[in-house]
Design a protein around this nucleic acid. Structure first.
Lengths: 226, 226
DNA sequence: CTGTATCCGTGTTGATACTG
DNA sequence: CAGTATCAACACGGATACAG
């Protein structure tokens, strides 16, 4: 009895050598993978993580951060005195989990029940660009695009049939899109025209408009099943 | 109050357009991915799924099978009268989830806390072969290998730097390995010699012994982090 | 033999309120 | 802003009983 309790207290794990099972021991709890997702483009503070995760409660986020830190997926960092704030940052190995998101995302995009019109965090959108980018459609394209999504700014560089998307100020770019992440998603994945989104005040397009029209075609979704 | 309960009764979901989040809505519950894993190499009956999942309880397995069927990941099939048994089979889209397991497995293999000496199901082992296969090491190799792991038999074909692993009788092969999955895993991933495993009665090697010695080197694990 | 349904103890999750 | 405390609802795992 007592022994059973102690054995169980060691947090429910699959006792399985299978790599996937071990991965789930590490990041299989509810919210854990989405917390990692929010950190995938760079360190964030507690509240900023929360902002990208509608529905998570503070205590659960605290628990996940503790668990992920213990697993070696992320580390707490205190920024130097001027901006004395605490941030959470993925370890190098933590950053290596991106293929997991790509595999999950690609697979789920074909789900009959996937609803792309739900809210979307800025990081999700940028990661989806890295996942869904089609080199064929970007052939001979060389462009710098700035995205201002709410509070966050990102820089997307497309060249040589590859895409790079990082956090950073949208300066010195050929094009800047400003709006909330769901508005940009509506243009790229929802088939809504840039003109309509601009007219509705959901999006602002500055710079090379032809580039903007092409940009939104670079990320084709796989065909839905059934 | 009542309304809240109804809203919640619709099974806890992330309200998030992110593909990864939707994938977790579908297969993020405890055991769900491992149930899919067990079906990855072909249909199975309830009890055979359970046998590969030490620790799952019957009622939880029932719930997961219902959920995965509703999500369109698997389907129930009743075999024709002679062998009138019910089996669960992944849908074509369900089979497409294999990259998720490969991404999870590759990432978790580098985890400091991964313990390859835990029990392992036959299907896990075969999937790990498909994931960890190194084409370079198999250059110029053309071989047919049979594996008899407990009740289950598999056929592994290696040719042209590619590997194919399917369920099937181990007939007409150059080599047959017989034993439990963890014994084969000990040889391939644990660095234990075939001779030692044979001496211990854990493994039987029939056919091309040189091939057996080479086979166990074809699946290198990535270096552990830290 | 192959599942399914129900009860029960426990742990996990999530909403709210609250503190440094 | 960055969490902690509390509590209610739920999910999990085990046992058992039941149906085809």
């Amino acid at each position: 009895m007592e022994l059973q309790k102690i054995t169980h207290a060691a947090r429910r794990r699959y006792e399985d050598a299978c790599g996937a099972a071990h991965a789930l021991d590490l990041v299989g709890e509810r919210w854990a993978l989405l917390v990692i997702r929010e950190l995938m483009l760079g360190p964030k503070r507690f509240s900023d993580i929360r902002a990208g995760l509608p529905g998570i409660s503070a205590n659960v986020l605290t628990q996940r951060l503790e668990g992920l830190e213990a697993a070696g997926v992320l580390a707490r960092k205190r920024l130097p005195p001027p901006a004395s704030a605490q941030v959470y940052e993925l370890t190098p190995w933590g950053y290596e989990s991106e293929p997991i998101f790509q595999a999950l995302g690609r697979w789920a995009a074909r789900s009959p029940s996937h609803d792309p019109s739900l809210p979307l965090s800025a990081v999700s959108l940028l990661l989806s660009f890295r996942t869904m980018f089609d080199p064929e459609r970007a052939r001979d394209l060389d462009a710098r695009i700035g995205l201002r999504l709410g509070e966050e700014s990102f820089l997307v560089r497309i060249a040589d049939g590859r895409i790079r998307a990082v956090r950073g100020a949208a300066a010195g770019t050929d094009l800047v899109l400003t709006g909330e992440a769901p508005a940009v998603a509506a243009a790229v994945y929802g088939g809504q025209s840039l003109a309509a989104l601009e007219a509705a005040g959901a999006l602002r397009v500055e710079g090379d408009r032809a580039l903007a029209e092409r940009f939104v075609t670079l990320f084709p979704l796989p065909p839905k099943v059934a």
